[in-house]
Nucleic acid binder design. Structure first.
Lengths: 234, 234
DNA sequence: CGGCCACTTGAAAACCTTCAACCTATGTGG
DNA sequence: CCACATAGGTTGAAGGTTTTCAAGTGGCCG
């Protein structure tokens, strides 16, 4: 374990995940051995910092440890959209494994720590089965966690579904008792959901009016716990 | 190579993909060795046949060889939606690798042949690195091919983007010269895109009127070749 | 203080859905 | 062969939802 830098609670070390005290947050239950999974923890990225750019040659796969990354995509037809979020335990960059270039820009929505996974070169044939199997599990599970459960819903339901999905993925402890912070602007939420920012504002107002949640600025508290329709495992 | 059944052009055999004459369609360029990747080809599924049901215990991962599978999802709030398509070379069922149950019902939209991949048990630690690496590559690439490039677009643009994306994924040879068949009803397309079937009809009419494509029933011909914005590799 | 950014609100316009009717092709039973 | 039923497709008009435009508020920071 070679220390490269230090920062209080988030030492920047290159280490085996098996030795990490918070490996469970990344890898879920530890039924599979973690030996051979090596990673290098980053310094905290402050809000607004960009971890990687769309189009950049893919250099690494990251896993989010703490905070939140927002994925922005420049569209061919001009303009930008929010293509996704990455919350603790989720992978970033693996979707570029075959295309070779990152498909979106990843920006810290709040103070964020990531680990850079140390992967063997593709095609080398020297990969550790254990590592590959763990990653495959995560990659396979990710679309289900990440996929839009709000397709074909009304604006109101979309916003509600988004917030409940966020609470699940962010593992908010007791979302009906404690308020949590949405780390995005109304415009970002709108872009992500395919809605105008004003529509997000009005939908939040209606949801609050009907008692499904309460919201003050970016602080939300849910009235009912979200169904574990997706995102329990991994 | 053990024959289990036979049917003209689609013998139902359990074999090593390295020995399959059309392995390139499934696995792309053959830079990585295919040794150790074993699969069992199915009999052709006729239109309407169901390969697997939502909620069913996950028993296998399939790869589409020919035809098209349509993924239908029963929603918690009642009703159904088309959650996706699977075209030749695309994987099916891997997203249930961690949840353990299929998340949607897969129905043949046209005569379809699949191969059941013979995977080692998860967590066994006896997996072939070569197989895992190939599958990881495919799984990583799939969201990019499959993700909705029409989020936040108007109905017209959504329908256009869908058809172009379909032509790319289906590898239609010269989509501007030869017509190809969309293997879905207007209602299915609408469900997939989050639009009413009538809206799909009207959008197709407008696209034809403006010369972006021509359509007769389910046969489409494009005016301009789709940009290879996604889905070139894998 | 002034500027900027996120957020909010209202009113008009654009868009999409819904409803209802009708059409066409296909398949079935008499 | 015809009558009938069914499913997919198409069209028009009405109504609802969402977007757009415009204006205004409040917080934060130089």
């Amino acid at each position: 374990m070679r220390h490269t830098r230090h920062n209080g609670r988030t030492p920047c070390v290159e280490t085996d995940c098996a030795a990490c005290p918070v490996a469970r947050r990344c890898w879920g239950d530890l039924a599979l051995p973690l030996e051979g999974v090596r990673a290098r923890r980053s310094m905290p990225l402050e809000r607004g910092a960009v971890l990687l750019h769309q189009g950049e040659r893919m250099g690494a796969v990251y896993i989010v440890v703490r905070g939140c990354l927002i994925l922005r995509e420049d569209l061919a037809r001009g303009g930008q959209r929010v293509a996704g979020l990455r919350l603790p335990g989720e992978l970033l960059g693996i979707e570029s494994y075959s295309s070779g270039a990152y498909s979106s820009t990843a920006e810290a929505a709040t103070e964020t720590v990531v680990c850079r996974l140390l992967l063997p070169a593709a095609g080398s044939g020297h990969s550790s089965s254990s590592l590959l199997e763990r990653i495959l599990l995560k990659v396979a599970a990710q679309p289900e966690r990440t996929a839009a459960p709000w397709a074909g819903l009304s604006a109101l339901e979309r916003v509600a579904a988004f917030i409940e999905n966020y609470a699940l993925r962010a593992r908010v402890p007791r979302p009906t008792e404690t308020a949590f912070i949405l780390p995005m602007t109304r415009a970002d939420i709108g872009s992500y959901l395919g809605l105008a920012p004003e529509t997000v504002v009005r939908a939040l107002g209606q949801l609050q009016g009907s008692g499904r949640l309460s919201i003050h600025g970016r602080a939300v508290r849910l009235a009912e716990p979200p169904l574990e329709c997706a995102a329990p495992a991994a």
